[in-house]
Design a protein around this nucleic acid. Sequence first.
DNA 1: CCAGCATAGGCGAACGTTCGCCTATGCGCT
DNA 2: AGCGCATAGGCGAACGTTCGCCTATGCTGG
Lengths: 334, 334
Amino acid sequence: MASLRDVAARADVSFQTVSKVLNGKGAVAPATRRRILDAAEELGYVPNALARSLQSRSSLTLGVITVDFASATPARFLVGIEREARQHGLSVLLSSLEPDGSDCVRYLRVLMERRVDGIIMNAPATEEDEEVGRVLRTGPPAVSLHDIAGGGVPRVSPESAGTAALPIRHLLALGHRRIAMVTGLRRQHSARRRTAVYRQVLAEHGVPYDPRLVEDGGWQVEGGYAATHRLLDRAGDLTAIYAQNDFMAVGVLNALHERGRRVPDDCSVVGCDDHPVAARTIPPLTTVRMPFFDTGAAAVRLLLDRVASGGAPPDDTVLPVSMVYRASTGPAGA
Amino acid sequence: MASLRDVAARADVSFQTVSKVLNGKGAVAPATRRRILDAAEELGYVPNALARSLQSRSSLTLGVITVDFASATPARFLVGIEREARQHGLSVLLSSLEPDGSDCVRYLRVLMERRVDGIIMNAPATEEDEEVGRVLRTGPPAVSLHDIAGGGVPRVSPESAGTAALPIRHLLALGHRRIAMVTGLRRQHSARRRTAVYRQVLAEHGVPYDPRLVEDGGWQVEGGYAATHRLLDRAGDLTAIYAQNDFMAVGVLNALHERGRRVPDDCSVVGCDDHPVAARTIPPLTTVRMPFFDTGAAAVRLLLDRVASGGAPPDDTVLPVSMVYRASTGPAGA
DNA sequence: CCAGCATAGGCGAACGTTCGCCTATGCGCT
DNA sequence: AGCGCATAGGCGAACGTTCGCCTATGCTGG
């Protein structure tokens, strides 16, 4: 692969002059310029970004560490991140983690070795990992979609309280009192926080908390399905179910169908995320719309601000969520 | 950020000796070794992969160019690619394209500038782009999940003929004759190829081809929904629908439900991909299982072979697909 | 007692850039 | 005629590595 020197030799100038021409800096005579451009063209010269980065001390790369994005949610964050990064001329170096996040520190190190300009974390599994927090604080500027142990890393995320409060209030307003919830992996902060909000909103409306109405669905379709069967087995009087994401809600709908419970007449269902599929489940799903792409984009912008300013970590950013009302919810006891 | 030189100064040796110690090459006295390791530790030394790549002429990076992976299919390929790459110690540089693939050449150039060791393409929109083919042939070894104009780039993909032949044969065996198909974007090769196979399989069974039974669903849930309504409007006698992916099948099921057609009694439905959601639609969806992760992984392995051997592009790799039978299909006229 | 060799570590060069500074040429002005 | 200045382009250095080769020291064996 041709280098500046090769082009220079062919155009009979010094390689620094070639650099000048190719970067449009410095004064160069039109004829020389032409000769250099031709030589570069003929040799198929492609600049070496590695060398450039080495010299300029900026790799124009963002590192992204994400939970396995085979599921919909992380993939959509990732899309938002990638799109925004691209718009700023940055490349994205992608690392996905084991489900338990055990290899996070290792990948952080790889990103640091590659001198990425910034790091975006989307790894709920590492929320309590002190080591991850420590490494993040010593490395390049970082932003996280989740909590980071020990702080110092600004967070950008959809309003987590709202994702539980909105649907529960909606169901309460419809007259429901026995409201079940299918959670994501309960050992994760985000699922636990939503559970706390669930309890609090119920309490505000004078509805007692019943732990038998909460089941772990592990974020997956099958988990939502199995959780619903368990819920119906031990709390058959429930009249509504909130699933913490739409995929689990698909499993919920299926299980209710199997049990002969009509939706929404016998049981209302609310999902979360507003995945395209939610619009066409049977019945179409009332759900919480999450600003996935915007969150990813906001994370990138925040990171770039940090890189540019070099200042202290800014405040957390919270993006609003909203309800989408469809046919899967109705008045209690209809 | 500390460099070899900084560590060397602190340990009072030459920086090359530090390099030796840190890479475990060459003979170094235990005491010196200790001093160097301590110095590196104290300074928080992190090697500079950029400089290393410059010298070693290998970036240990794979470039991936993919269609927008907000939809399920490309995301799952990507996961397969990323997992396999990780296992080989390679990082993944991610670029996603505009829907029309117009920025493909630009991103290829970025990858070449960054001296990636190989390129994996997952961009159906550029299948006919001659320029893309040309650039790919001059760059580092590449592998594509789709066709590349002008050839020279080995292809790794699920068996495309099977994805249409299997479900159509299944429906024919159930006695269906009026079999409709909801395609992906029809201007793409893969969708067109499946249409050709659809015609051929029908012909083999003596069933005439009726263009009114084929509709474009554009790969999306809503597209599948709208296409089904159009199909029912103009060919109400259909008894089965094959949707070229599961998300469109969700839309198909919903539209049939709206029209009061029971599945599978009044109309059978087959999807494609075996997305987790397919197992819990109402009714659960008969579908084609695609080896997404395996395909991504196979692409990486093929690419690594090419990088290692430096040989000529190997043959195309085709991975088998299979049927998953669920409740959405049944005998015709049941 | 010295050749020979293993061991420890230094040193120069190269990878491909960018940047700042220096020099040579030519021209206009007083 | 001579000064100064703009223009064109050369040159050295630096970014942080790795690699191969060289040298100094000390030990072993004949």
